[in-house]
Amino acid sequence: MIRGKAVVLGDNVDTDGIIPARYLTSTDPKELAKHCMEGLDPHFLERITPGATILVAGKNFGCGSSREHAPLAIKGCGIVAVIAASFARIFFRNAINIGLPILESEEAAFRIREGDMVSIDLATGEIHNETTGEVFKAQPFPPLLQEIIAAGGLMNLVEKRVRTNS
């Protein structure tokens, strides 16, 4: 179970907003986290409680560049999950591959308000708005993706497979 307070963003949050390219000089999630959402809102980090914030965004979250630094920065600053009405394709893959929990639910994205306390059951895809009592159901992931998520990311899965094969 994942739990946190909602920080709400709009539609089409792009990767230049999430992490401007000038910070791609680092691959360290902690360093990247210092600039998370800087392009979108220079005061974003003041809205975050590390380990207890869930991002809730509109449609097409993470559109733009293929930079994996984007989900790394989000994970690095202690955001525990991202709920969006929809995700851009490469961000979707990158988030799963690095083990950042993401959930797609138009209804949840539309209904959850800034500051609501939200809990998520990743196994069932259930999103519970504890503040209002509403429950939403996210799109379930296909089996291969569930396997990647269960392994804690693509690297862990590949490493595990390489080890079992050798």
């Binding site: 560049s65 293929s66 490469i90 893959r93 990158n94 591959n97 690095i98 990311g153 693509l154 690297m155």
Partner: peptide
């Protein structure tokens, strides 16, 4: 596949090309 979102360009010559992330490139 290319670790750049505009890898989709090569469809101009009838290849299926698409952008991926860094971990995927490593894999």
């Amino acid at each position: 596949v290319g670790a750049d979102s505009h890898t989709c360009t090569y469809g101009a010559i009838g290849a299926f090309s698409t952008g991926i992330g860094s971990t995927e490139l490593a894999v």
